[in-house]
Simulated assay, not measured.
Amino acid sequence: MKQGLWKSFIGANVAIVTGLLLTACGSDNASSGEDGEELIEITQVTSWFPQVENAGQYYAALEGFYEEEGLSVTTEPGGPTVSSTQIVASGNAEIGMAQADQVLNAINEGIPLVAFFTNFQKTPQGIMFHADQPVETFDDLADGYEVYTAAGAGYWEYLVHSTSITDEQNRVYSGDNTTFATNKKAASQMYVTSEPFYLAQEGIETNHLLIADSGYSPYGDVLFTTKEYLEENPEVIQAYVNAITKGWNAFKENPEPLYPYIIELEPEKTVEQMEYATEQMQDLVFGGDAAEHGVGTMTEERWQTLIDQLVELEIIDEGLTVEEVYTNQFLN
Rank of each mutant, 00 (worst) to 15 (best):
F129Q: 03
V114D: 03
M128W: 06
G144V: 05
E168D: 15
Q169P: 01
I107L: 09
K184T: 14
E195H: 06
G144D: 15
T179M: 15
G220N: 03
A131V: 14
L104D: 02
A151F: 01
F180T: 13
P112V: 08
V147Q: 09
D221S: 14
T166R: 02
P124I: 03
Q102H: 11
A131R: 09
Y219D: 00
Q125W: 02
E168T: 13
G175P: 07
Q201N: 12
V222S: 00
Y173F: 15
Y173N: 07
N108S: 12
G203W: 13
N183C: 08
T118C: 11
T149L: 14
E146V: 01
F117Y: 15
I95H: 02
A115K: 04
D176A: 13
N119F: 11
M97G: 04
Q189G: 09
Q102F: 08
Y219H: 02
F180Y: 12
A115C: 10
P218A: 09
Y198H: 10
M190I: 14
Q133A: 12
G215L: 11
G215I: 12
E168Q: 14
A106I: 04
L199Q: 03
W156N: 06
S188M: 14
D143E: 14
I127M: 04
N105I: 15
A142T: 12
N177F: 15
D221F: 05
D221G: 06
A106F: 08
P196T: 13
G215H: 10
